[in-house]
Amino acid sequence: MTADPILRITNASKHFVSGDTVVRALDGVSIEVRPGELVGILGASGSGKSTMLLLAGLLEVPTAGTVDLLGTTVSYPDARLDRLRDLRRRHIGFVFQKANLIPFLTAAENVALALEIDDVPARAALNHAVALLEELGLGHRVDNRPARLSGGEQQRVAIARALANAPPLLLADEPTAALDSVRGRHVMELFHHISRSAGTAVVVVTHDPRSLDLFDRTYEFSDGKVIAEHRGNHTAPAMPLWEPRPHLTD
């Protein structure tokens, strides 16, 4: 791939001071993720995967190094986190191990909320959310609250929420850890399809080896460093699952 990277982390370190000890959670890491790529971040617990995700998601600033988003350096050691909020809202979607849905909102409202936060009018946001959920096979669940959804359905709602405002970068932290193998595979295929059909750069932190074949590239982390980078041989998912909707009207 030759397109400019959506995300570029350059020589980033993150150190935490704990008493007299300095913990090097991340130590001189550089990675790039380009449009349409599905990138895996692999490694054991404590290897620095989640810290890398915090830097990539503009939830922490690096102790050293830089984070570029869409070709612009946005995060660096002195950067103010509160000023990164708007960039995060417009350009980054998040999916976690737990769906983290708002319990008092329906599936459609959970998705629409992400759009309303981005100043999309309420009705247009809800219409788009319903359409998005229908495309993810959850058309019959739009009016259900999270407590009435299965774990897989909740995770798909969370993915729909992350995709709602069509971010160029999607970050996922162990998104299949709470799912069985079939549902986990289905979610990974969904990420793959999103990267291909929408050109979204998708970064998935995982230690699940069952879907490695879907990744375009993987970075292997250990002790806060990238110890290996692999290019993968992906297999196309069985069916298209999602199409982006760039324009929203009331």
């Binding site: 909020r85 909320l113 936060i117």
Partner: peptide
């Protein structure tokens, strides 16, 4: 608090 953290992660303004 957890939901508020999620709202912040999604970029919600403090006003909301």
């Amino acid at each position: 608090l957890h939901q508020i953290a999620m709202l912040k992660l999604m970029g919600a303004r403090s006003r909301m």
